[in-house]
Every structure is written in structure tokens, then in C-alpha cells.
Amino acid sequence: MAERHRIEGFKREGLLPIISLSEFGRGGRSTVDWVVTVYPFHWVPAGGARHASTDARPDGALAYPSGTGVRVLCGQELVADNSELAWLWGTCTDCHAAARRIADC
């Protein structure tokens, strides 16, 4: 019998969002809490690579729409390309290093 998962709820403990996930399988039902870390940067394909940016995304969008101008962590100002292929581009090494410094704080 395949296991099924369902998100049961979402809560905050301090600054950390917690997602409760229920698992249904052979052993019945159990709930697991997952901590989701939210960083102040977002990944954006632009200029032939995947970059990181702290610019706000328009209207709460999950990604920067294609054609959106973004300032990225490596210091460039680029235009987002939200196509499926663009998400497969290599990661900008300078943005990766800057994002790691932010995430490791």
C-alpha cells in the first residue's frame, strides 16, 4: 500500500515556520513537523545563469516574471527569464557565495 501525505497545518514558532505533514501508510497515521527556513533572497534565471536577488518579487509572485529587471547579489542588474529552460542554467558562483554568506548567518 502506497503512503499518502497531506499537509495538516502551518504554524510559527518564533521566526521559523513549521509545516505539519501527516503520513498515512501501513502503520496508520503519524504527523511529522518540518521546519521551513525562509531566506531573504530568491533565485532568478537571468543573463544566462541562475542568480540570487533580494529584490521584492512583484505582487507576491513565486518567481520573478520574465522581463522583470532585478539587481542580483553579484552586483549586476539583469532581466529575469522565467522560462523552463532558464531554470536549468548553471549557478552564478558570486551569487552562490553571497547567498551562502546570508544563509549561514
Rank of each mutant, 00 (worst) to 15 (best):
C105L: 15
V70I: 09
E23W: 02
W34C: 07
L21K: 06
K11S: 14
G75T: 04
G27D: 12
I102A: 05
G28S: 06
T54S: 15
V35I: 09
H5T: 00
A86M: 07
H96Q: 12
S20C: 00
G14V: 01
T91A: 15
M1L: 09
L62M: 11
P40M: 10
T37V: 10
F10L: 06
D55P: 00
Y39K: 11
I102D: 07
G75P: 10
C95N: 02
V36P: 00
A99N: 02
I18E: 06
R12P: 00
A2I: 05
K11V: 02
G14N: 04
A80F: 08
A103H: 11
Q76D: 15
G27A: 11
L62C: 11
Y64G: 04
N82K: 11
R26E: 13
V38P: 07
L88Q: 14
R29V: 08
P45F: 05
P40T: 10
G69Q: 14
N82F: 04
D33Y: 03
A61W: 07
A63W: 09
P65T: 15
W34Y: 12
E13S: 05
P45N: 09
F10K: 04
V35T: 14
A49L: 15
L15D: 14
E8D: 05
Y64K: 09
R6T: 01
R29I: 08
V36W: 02
T31K: 10
G48V: 00
A52V: 03
A80Y: 05
Q76H: 10
A52L: 05
L62D: 12
C105R: 15
W43V: 02
V36N: 00
H96D: 13
G75F: 06
C74T: 01
T91F: 01
E23R: 07
E8I: 02
R50T: 08
L78I: 04
R6L: 02
S66L: 11
W87E: 02
P45C: 12
A49Q: 15
A86R: 04
A99H: 03
V35G: 12
G48S: 04
G75E: 12
G27S: 11
A61Y: 06
S53Q: 06
T93W: 02
N82S: 14
S83H: 05
L62V: 09
G60C: 05
E23H: 04
Y39I: 09
T93Q: 15
R100L: 14
